[in-house]
């Protein structure tokens, strides 16, 4: 006999809506958030408001008399300034290439470290170390002992391949800076992807084995989709930090030769520290911020997707 289902549910007796949270309760919930919120608004937003104000001012540190209003002239300068545009493009190139390569290497390393082999812990320790090295130290060590044309270790190691005393920082400046950034951020990507790999439930992998999937198919069909949020998170956080990359540029090439490695952060730094042009730098900063907001809007959407917020309101 079929169990006959479908006992009709009577219509709700009263039309109800959730009562929600009381006003007092709402303030009690808000209270712990306020210190951090106020702090971050004061410390991060006020400087940008001031930046906006200065961007309409003519203000040089080295010229006495203080600031005075100049209208949009700072912006005109920024938009007609080829150096600004070039540094903007360079920033994009540097960030994108280093993040992408670091992520590819990071995935490869994570897959290596996910296998069992003798001394896995030691190798993991070796691989994460570059992330822990002070960026200033990394930049100086790469610029000197590693890449120096006369006594650098890299030239020595590449001698068998016909490389002789290449002055990397003069001939391949941008590439060298990017290599150092990749070297520092690959461990970060490795750790994030490794966390993803190790969070993959073993039973689904076993199920795939039983279903007859090979290593490659398992990776493509199961592992990669599982890793996706981790990869996105790595790219996102990596971009946030690398777009502000300053140490390597300042300490390895000082933006040179010429302006070959001048990215936006270094350009703005120069405007303030060498040209003393607070107004001009502020206008450039405002433009940078607006561009960042455009990019960040997409990035934030990505964040929302990565974290999905399945947890919902607890």
């Amino acid at each position: 006999m079929a169990v006959v289902e479908g006992v009709a549910a009577p219509a709700p007796k009263v039309r109800l809506r959730p009562r929600g949270v009381s006003r007092r309760e709402q303030w009690q919930r808000r209270l712990p958030l306020l210190p951090a919120l106020i702090y971050i608004i004061v410390v991060t937003q006020i400087p940008f408001v001031v930046t906006l104000w200065y961007s309409f001012q003519n203000y040089f540190f080295d010229i006495p008399g203080g600031a005075h209003f100049t209208g949009l002239s700072n912006y005109t300068t920024v938009f007609t300034n080829a150096a600004f545009r070039a540094s903007l493009v360079r920033s994009v190139v540097m960030t994108a290439s280093s993040v992408i390569v670091a992520m590819i290497l990071g995935m490869a390393f994570a897959l290596l470290l996910d296998r069992k082999f003798l001394g896995r812990g030691v190798v993991r320790t070796l691989i994460i170390t570059p992330f822990l090295v002070m960026p200033a130290a990394a930049a100086l060590v790469w610029a000197g002992p590693m890449l120096d044309p006369n006594f650098g270790l890299l030239n020595y190691l590449l001698t068998p391949f016909g490389v002789h005393h290449v002055a990397w920082l003069s001939t391949h400046a941008l590439g060298s800076v990017i290599v150092v950034m990749i070297w520092q951020w690959t461990p970060f990507m490795t750790l994030i992807v490794l966390a993803g790999l190790q969070g993959q439930p073993a039973d689904t992998l076993e199920a795939a084995k039983v279903d007859g999937a090979g290593a490659l198919a398992t990776f493509r069909e199961l592992t990669l989709p599982h890793l996706r949020p981790y990869i996105e998170l790595g790219i996102l956080l990596g971009s946030i930090y690398l777009v502000n990359a300053f140490d390597a540029v300042r300490l390895m090439t000082n933006g040179g030769p010429g302006t070959a490695t001048t990215n936006l952060p270094f350009y703005l730094y120069q405007q303030v520290n060498y040209a003393f042009d607070v107004g001009g730098a502020a206008a450039a900063g405002v433009v940078t911020v607006i561009l960042t907001i455009i990019v960040a809007t997409f990035a934030l959407r990505m964040f929302a997707r990565v974290f999905q917020f399945d947890e919902a309101a607890g």
Binding site: I240, N244, P265
Partner: peptide, 13 residues
């Protein structure tokens, strides 16, 4: 989002 604002942009002010 405050992390995404480049601090370098505001260094002068």
């Amino acid at each position: 989002s405050t992390k995404m604002l480049p601090i370098v942009a505001a260094i002068g002010p």
